[in-house]
C-alpha cells in the first residue's frame, strides 16, 4: 500500500492504495465518484476521461499512485456554484441531444472541455479529431459535434443561434424552432 494525497473535485483525500490500483477504480470504489466510468481495457473508449492537473487523461491508464499530489476534476466537478450551474458543454449536450444512453457522456464532456481550452473555436473537423479518443455507440457523433461547437460559441461570448447548428430544425414539419440559449 502506498499513501496518496489528492484533491478531487475540490475536496482533499488521503488514502492508502495498492500501486496497481487504477485512478478510475480509486475514484469509483474508494471515493464513490461513480460518475466516471470504465468502458474498456485498452484506453480506446475514453469513457473514463478526467482532468489530471487540468489536462484530460484516461483514468484507466493512469495509476492512482501517479495522481499523488495532483488535482483531479471529474464530470461531477465541472458544474460551478457547487453544481448549481452547468458547464456550457454540459448544457450544450443537453440542448442539442448530444447523448442517448449517456455512458460515454462523462468522458466525452471532459474531453470536449479539454479540446475547447486548447482550441476555443474549432471547425467541425477539428471537433471530430479532437474527440477521436472517445467512442460513442449511440449518437453517430453528429449532435455531439454540434454541442461542442455551440458550447465553444457560448464560451467565446458569442450568441448562439446559427440555425444550421440546430438538430432537427427543418427536418420535420413537426419540429418547433429551437429554444433560445439562456
Amino acid at each position: 500500500m502506498t499513501q496518496i494525497n489528492v484533491r478531487v473535485d475540490g475536496a482533499s483525500y488521503s488514502d492508502d492504495v495498492e500501486p496497481r490500483t487504477l485512478l478510475v477504480h480509486y475514484l469509483r470504489e474508494q471515493l464513490g465518484k461513480v460518475g466516471t466510468v470504465v468502458g474498456c481495457d485498452t484506453s480506446n473508449c475514453g469513457a473514463c476521461t478526467v482532468h489530471l492537473d487540468g489536462q484530460a487523461v484516461k483514468s484507466c491508464t493512469v495509476l492512482a499512485v501517479q495522481a499523488d499530489g495532483s488535482e483531479v476534476t471529474t464530470i461531477e466537478g465541472v458544474a460551478s456554484g457547487g453544481g448549481a450551474t452547468l458547464h456550457p458543454v454540459q448544457r450544450a449536450f443537453h440542448e442539442l441531444h448530444g447523448l442517448q444512453c449517456g455512458f460515454c457522456t462523462p468522458g466525452m464532456i471532459m474531453a470536449s472541455i479539454d479540446l475547447l481550452k486548447e482550441n476555443p473555436d474549432p471547425t467541425e473537423t477539428e471537433v471530430r479529431e479532437g474527440i477521436e479518443g472517445n467512442l460513442c455507440r449511440c449518437t453517430g457523433y453528429q449532435n455531439i459535434v454540434r454541442a461542442v461547437q455551440q458550447a465553444a460559441a457560448e464560451m467565446r461570448g458569442e450568441a448562439p443561434g446559427d440555425p444550421g447548428a440546430s438538430p432537427a430544425a427543418g427536418d420535420t414539419a413537426a419540429a418547433e424552432p429551437m429554444a433560445a440559449q439562456s
Binding site: 484506453s43 475514453g46 476521461t49 489530471l52 489536462q55 484530460a56 487523461v57 484516461k58 491508464t61 493512469v62 474531453a111 479539454d114 479540446l115 479532437g130 477521436e132 479518443g133 472517445n134
Partner: peptide, 9 residues
C-alpha cells in the same frame, strides 16, 4: 499518435 488524452501521458 493515438488521441489527445493519450498524447498527454
Amino acid at each position: 499518435v493515438a488521441d489527445r488524452q493519450v498524447r498527454r501521458r
